[in-house]
Each structure stands twice: as structure tokens, then as C-alpha cells.
Write a protein that binds this DNA or RNA. Sequence first.
DNA 1: ATACAAACATACATGAATGATTGTAAATAT
DNA 2: ATATTTACAATCATTCATGTATGTTTGTAT
Lengths: 206, 206
Amino acid sequence: MRRTKEDAAKTREEVLAAAAEVFFENGVSGSSLDKIARRAGVTRGAIYWHFKDKAEVLTALHSEIRLPQEELVDHALEHGHDDPLSLIEQASIEVVHILANDEQQQRIFAIMILGCEFTEDPSETAQRIITANAEMYEKLQKLIDMADRQGNLAPGWTVDTAARAFQCCMNGLFAEWLRSGKSFPVIDVGERLVRSVIGSIRRKAA
Amino acid sequence: MRRTKEDAAKTREEVLAAAAEVFFENGVSGSSLDKIARRAGVTRGAIYWHFKDKAEVLTALHSEIRLPQEELVDHALEHGHDDPLSLIEQASIEVVHILANDEQQQRIFAIMILGCEFTEDPSETAQRIITANAEMYEKLQKLIDMADRQGNLAPGWTVDTAARAFQCCMNGLFAEWLRSGKSFPVIDVGERLVRSVIGSIRRKAA
DNA sequence: ATACAAACATACATGAATGATTGTAAATAT
DNA sequence: ATATTTACAATCATTCATGTATGTTTGTAT
């Protein structure tokens, strides 16, 4: 009962979708490959065909998140922008809106932030997550550096401090929202939070 | 080789200390009771004598964190305070300083925030963490409510939105710091962040 | 002095998850 | 038309952690 290439690609997607659900429900280490297979309507054999092990399923899931605003930010980094802080503000608010409406991305985000166990000697999977976070931070830092060179950074702030503070807020926002079972309006809180922090970072007009 | 009561209490503490280390290094579900026992210099028998199972070790660890400023906040809640927002600001900055210098509490915090797997149908352990977080939120909310009734809440903010925003920032700060391997100065970032958000929440003097 | 219980260590039984191997039917290349 | 992969399913051996049960030694009460 061999399937055509499209069929195979389909089962691969179904496995990933099932993995997202099961990981989300039981945590990564609480999810056996058998559970995922059953949810996907296949056997473990199928999973082992498409992926090396559970870690590879996780990284495959992770590589599925590609927020559209990343291109926006990349473009600004390449071509420059006359108001980088406003760009950060707008892009971040956009991300909040997107995440608030995309259940699949919420699940993946929850798995990454809350469901992946911390290790001091990180597994390659955990390492990838840390790396992705670091890349995000670098972009943030470069944009704020642009703002600084344009004289728009408020006194007292350094580029690094500002970038870290903003990153903490955003990750904290999503983590708390997902951890609490979406018990508060992310969009409201997120918009106010973003504007507050950006407002503090931005040098006030004299 | 029965020990005296003091000896027994000592091994209990040693088991907890070892558990904090092992959990921190390998994650909760990646830590077998045997590993913890070896680290503590005992056998699993000793652990099973003092605790029912791994979950009970975790909750025992969790109950070890009692930040001193909780009493400060409780006192303010009971007796009122003429400037609750300043109280939040000071207490939070104090917490940052304490956490920055207490490795044991850092480990426990890391385990709770990063190392405890998320479950939609939460285990009792996870539930305790969520509950503790909710209690913290309630106190925050009551303090901000006090500020609101004193006319000190900036327009645009609601009590809930402000409390959530602040909570997200603080948890995000610690989570990012620990996840990143303490790669940035928490105290600097934390102080600026706290002052920024509280500054945004507080109504400006006319 | 003796009986009992506390504080463990040791040994064992169980189950769950993994990874590897093998089987196999259909798709595709030749 | 045949050979060869592909895309899985099914089975198996092994590991590993857990929980329990039992053994052993020593404090402690009487």
C-alpha cells in the first residue's frame, strides 16, 4: 500500500499536525511517538520514516513558524528606516494580532516556550530555540542601534539594555498568555505594553 | 544504620538540594530519581522514604521560595498605602536584586518557569505553579486598584490590563535571563523595565 | 534488656518507550 | 515487463524508570 509522493507529503503534514496537538496537550517528554502516530492515523513506522526521532519532529515543527513581519524587519535592516522604533512598534503589534488569531502558531509557540525542558547542556533542539531567540534579539538590537545613531534613544538607556527589555516583555507576554490558558486579552495588554516600553525607550522631543 | 532525627532532616535537605541541581541540569522529566539519589549520596529508598514520588519532590522544592517582600506587599494590602505604585516599584526592584544573588532560588525559578512541562490538563504540580502565579497576580491587581481609587492610574489603562502587563514583564525578565544563561545584566534591565512600566501606568502630574 | 519503630539500602517486578529489523504492496524507473 | 525503490506496517529486543516489597541497622521508649 505504497502512496504517491503527494500522499507521502500529506502524511508528513498530518504527523506534524498531530505532533503539535499531542505535544501541546501532554508536553514534549510526555508525548510518545506512538501517541502521535495514533493521533495521525498511522504507526510509528511512518514517523520513523519521515523523521529520525522525536527531536527531529520538534525541530520540524519549529521551522514552521515564519512570522510575516520578519521580512519587514529584514527589509528595514537592509535599506535603513527613518524611524526604527516606530517600525518595531508596528511590527510587534502586528505579531500580537497574528498570534492571537492563529491557533497552530499558538500551539507551537507554547510548546517552544513552555513545553520544552530546559537543560544546562542543551540538546540540539533546545539549542535551536535559543539560537532563534538570539537571532531575533540581534535584529532588535540592530534596529535600536539605528535609532540610537539617529539620536532617538532616551538618555539612560543603552542599545543592549533597551533591546533586552523589549524582548523580555514580548516573550513574557506570550508566555503568560499561553500559560494562563489565554485568560486575558493579549491584544489589549500587548498594545499598551509595546507602546509603553517603546515610549520609554524613545527620546522625548524637546 | 538508623540516623537521629537531625540526620534525617539533613538528608532530606540534601535530597532537595540535589534535586534542584539535577532538575536544573536535565529538566524535570529528564531527571530520574536514581540520578537525584546518587547526587545526594543516597539511594532511591531514601527519597521514597521522605517523599511520595517525584512530583512531591518538586512541590517541596517549590514551597522553598518565599520572597521576603511578600510580607511587605501583604502588609500594604492590609493597612493600605499612600502610594501603591511606588511600593510595587520598590518591591519588584528588590526582588530582582535578591534573585540575582541567590543561585538556589534561580535554579528553582528556572525549573518552575522553564523546566516544568506545560499540560492542557495540568498535573497537580503544574497546577500549584499556576495557582501561585495567580495569587501573585491578585495581589498586584489589588495594589493597582488602590492606586486607581486614589486617582493615580493613567488614562487608557484598566486595573487588569496594568496588572497583566506588569506581570508579563517581570516573568519575562526572569525567564529570558535564565533561559539565556544569565547572559545580560538583569539588574540593569530589570530596574529600567520596572521604572518604565510603572511610569507608564502612573498618571502624570498635571 | 527488650520491643518497636525510624531511616534507610537492596532487590525485584512491571510497564512504557525506544530504535532496529523485517515484511510488503504499490509507485516509479528502465 | 521487470527491477527497484518508496512508504509505510508489524514485530522484536533492549533499555530505563518507576513502584513496591523486603531486609537491615540503629535510635528510643518502657
